[in-house]
Amino acid sequence: MPLVKLDNVSKIYSIENASVTALDNITLSIESGSFISVIGKSGAGKTTLLRIINRIEKPDTGTISYERSVKTGTIFQEPRLIRTKTVEKNLKLALCREKDNDEKKRLIDETLEMTGLEHFRKAYPFQLSGGMAQRVALGRALCRKPELLLMDEPFGSLDAITRKNLQQELTSIYRSRAITIIFITHDVTEAIMLSERILVMNKGRITDNIAVDLPRERNENDRDFINIRKKLYELII
């Protein structure tokens, strides 16, 4: 049984008197352990899909079902850090239920190391660069060991180098943990680089579902890589 299952899910927003179909009859199964990217033009419904999976939003019609109670971690396009808390305290927020203080400390230390933020433990968000802030957000989502990681264009606002580094980190996290990832991006190369499967969205529908059978480490100059990219560009338009 899949980890998450959407059956005929639709979501319609009304703006003034007009109505916008953000999701149009989506049926989708997310298998445990998969790394799925969702690509599509802006307004295609990617964020809405993620918000429904996240249960921030309820579908208007259709159903969403979880195999069991799944612990999720979410990374938004913006870091969404609390401006009066240090990096460490921002991470602690995700662990505020953890009663065991030693375990809490261990998880925080581990997360700071993983995200390369050891020296910024006591820094406040205003003292961080955009890339560092997004790393904190990544750490916050990961430190409570989610089984399902939901990412909405998380690296969209970062420079190319930071972006590459975070992509590598994400890949190694995926390969070292039992984790399911849904990753939204408008960057086709990023989707091919990271994921096992790519969903193409268009006007609220999933129009294509492409498997990426490339070995890791992937290289964007490989012929197979380029072929998939070419195909995806055609599908998005």
Partner: peptide, 21 residues
């Protein structure tokens, strides 16, 4: 909303997010 994604309760959101922000 970020607090919701961490499964915080109403009061946890007030204490850990609303007041500090």
């Amino acid at each position: 909303e970020m607090g919701d994604t961490l499964d915080l309760t109403y009061f946890e959101k007030i204490y850990y997010i609303l007041i500090p922000e």
